[in-house]
Amino acid sequence: MIQEDRFPKIFWNYVISFALLVFAMGLALCLGATDADWEMVRDLRLPRVILAAGIGMGLAVSGGVLQVLFNNPLCEPYILGISSGSALGVVIGMSVGIHLNLGGLVGTSFLGALTFAIILFWISQRTFHLGTHQGQTTLLLVGVVLGFLGNGLLALWIALAEPSQLQSATVWFFGDLSRARLSGALLTFVGVVCGIALIFTQARDLDAYLLGGSEAQSMGVDGARLQKIMIGLTSVLVGLCVSGGGVIGFVGLLVPHAVRFWVGTPHRNSLPLTAIWGAITLVIADLLSRWIARPYELPVGVITALLGSPVLIAVLIRRKVVIS
């Protein structure tokens, strides 16, 4: 319920963001490795742009929510290993022979993400008595370990996989949007928008959570309920994103911090803008991945890592200053 007396300003923020999103998507449709005819744009680039926008929204919002939920500005599905867990879920599903149509893909991916998120949450509860800072560090280290575990098991799967399956292996490490089909892209996009809308209904309670779990509870927020809802919804978002485009890092770190810096933290405004800017970021990143080394294509995860890791370092440095 945070008061915003600058309505016109925030209104223009939305207008500018939307205009930029439309512009970025248009640009991504027009530019590519080769001159394209209409059929190529419709069959290849359009699904890809829709998929990139959906994944960008999902990753950015789930990053922002995880940061608030764990009260830790360095959280993000990739850094916490949740994305790896999600990819691992798909790979395990494949090896036990689940038929990976669209539903199977999203389902296994969601279950993987949920498992890793619950492990993380359980550990964050266990380490609560360590105090804020030690608890935060522990959580990040556990996330890194889970990421290693996930990646290790993925590498094991690749080592044992048949050559025909190997082509899709890199997607689980770096992310790949080139295999987008229109039906899958639309599913991801619509699913992510619905997930974000559900998260938005809890915006007030998330605001209260900014001051930490105990404060939120003394302000009348049902902490246990909110945590369950948010773990479930972020797992759905990560599941959708990873099943659509593989493991893409740093979007969830880069975008929420930039938006908070720009319009402030209260979620009524920062959540929708985080979603829009997540879409812009990943559409542009995907365009760059196709454009920079044309006619070859870079994995989109490489671009987001190059953009995102300086932000990670900046947040770390800034945080030290504030705390001391």
Binding site: I2, Q67, L210
Partner: peptide, 15 residues
Amino acid sequence: FYTEFPLTVAQAVSL
């Protein structure tokens, strides 16, 4: 009473 995120005093009190 602390937060890790940008929040003004008026916003924090209105929570």
